[in-house]
Simulated assay, not measured.
Amino acid sequence: MQADLSFCIFIILLSNEIIAGMETKDIRRQNLRALINEHTLNNLSRAAFAEKVGITASQLSQVASPKFVRNIGDVLARRVESAFGLPAGWMDNIHTDADSKPGKTESANNYNLQNLSGNYTDHTYRLEQLDVEISCGGGRMNSDYPEVIQSIEIDPEYAKRMFGGRPASSLKITTAVGDSMKGSVEPGELVVLDVTVGRFVSDGIYAFTYGDTVHIKRLQRLKDRLIVISDNQTYEKWEISSDDESQLHIQGFVVGKWEMNYTRLG
């Protein structure tokens, strides 16, 4: 009996250690699969599930199947939460309480959320990737380019000085593509975004979507319009009028960059 009890305690401790070590991408996939299972039990097909989220059945398979080929990024995670009436951040957290089963969507108070950011703050400062490839040029959403750098872990004290005290949860990294911001942001560099900035607050460099395209550009307010500026003088300025600002969705404010350069020596 004592041996059985010791074994059970060992299994519980091991399970908790595994859960604590899970990355956000794995937690999101686990939660998405739980949602899919819950709704297929209620006679909602996977195709109908995908349609409700606003993606194709093929895209759902790419992120949720046992042989998944893509991770679930911020945009898709927030879409899922919105589609099924879940509180913001539900997809990013582990749910172990009975009240946190995905079928209970009546109220955000039904969810006992375990914020994973606490797993990192004592020992490291982790920046994860935004699921949008940002273009210093035309721009595209959810690119097929491989995600070479998915996260960066930094010493907390160094991060505090580097990012002015911003918490890791407010920052994301993404890769810049194109040369329109050459001089400030080079093609292929990792850009650090403060994703808590969701609107124009002052002149500076922003990551934003406009219509169907995604950009990193300098934005400057001039009376009732925004001037979109490329630091590479080859590119012309363009404007977003007050009438067109509904098409502008700011992904974040650019607070810095990482100059990434790998040289193979062997």
Score class of each variant (00 low, 15 high):
Thr175Pro: 00
Gly252Tyr: 01
Lys104Ile: 14
Ser100Ile: 06
Ser246Lys: 15
Phe84Asn: 02
Ala83Pro: 03
Val192Arg: 01
Pro167Ser: 10
Gly211Ile: 07
Asn71Glu: 07
Ala88Val: 08
Ser170Tyr: 05
Asp131Ser: 12
Ser242Phe: 11
Ile11Ala: 14
Gln62Phe: 00
Leu5His: 13
Glu17His: 12
Arg33Ser: 10
Ala83Glu: 01
Pro87Asn: 07
Ala108Tyr: 01
Ala64Thr: 07
Gln150Cys: 11
Asp244Trp: 02
Lys172Gly: 01
Cys136Phe: 04
Pro102Met: 02
Glu81Pro: 01
Ser61Met: 05
Glu236Met: 15
Ser246Phe: 13
Val53Phe: 09
Cys8Glu: 14
Val197Ala: 06
Asp74Gly: 05
Leu130His: 06
Thr209Glu: 09
Val53Thr: 06
Glu259Leu: 14
Ser246Pro: 02
Lys257Glu: 01
Asn110Trp: 10
Gly73Trp: 08
Ser169Tyr: 04
Gly198Cys: 05
Ala48Gln: 10
Lys104Ser: 11
Ala159Gln: 01
Leu222Pro: 01
Gly178Asp: 07
Tyr145Ala: 14
Glu128His: 11
Leu44Ile: 15
Leu5Ala: 12
Ile205Trp: 00
Ile227Asn: 03
Phe200Cys: 08
Asp99Gln: 03
Phe84Cys: 07
Asp224Glu: 09
Val214Phe: 03
Tyr206Leu: 05
Val201Glu: 12
Gly178Ile: 04
Ala48Trp: 09
Lys101Leu: 13
Leu13Met: 05
Thr175Tyr: 09
Arg218Glu: 08
Ile205Cys: 01
Val254Ile: 02
Ser58Arg: 05
Pro167Gly: 03
Pro102Lys: 04
Arg166Asn: 11
His215Thr: 08
Gln233Arg: 11
Leu76Cys: 03
Arg70Trp: 04
Ile36Val: 15
Leu35Met: 08
Leu35Pro: 06
Leu76Glu: 05
Leu127Thr: 01
Gly118Ser: 03
Ala83Tyr: 02
Phe163Trp: 05
His215Phe: 14
Glu245Gly: 06
Asn142Lys: 06
Asp99Ala: 13
Cys8Met: 14
Ile72Arg: 07
Val148Trp: 11
His95Glu: 05
His95Ala: 09
Glu51Pro: 02
Asp4Gly: 07
Arg218Lys: 15
Ser15Cys: 14
Arg78Ser: 13
Gln220Glu: 15
Leu116Lys: 10
Ser61Arg: 09
Pro102Ile: 04
Asp26Pro: 03
Lys257Asp: 00
Phe163Gln: 00
Phe84Ser: 03
Ile12Tyr: 11
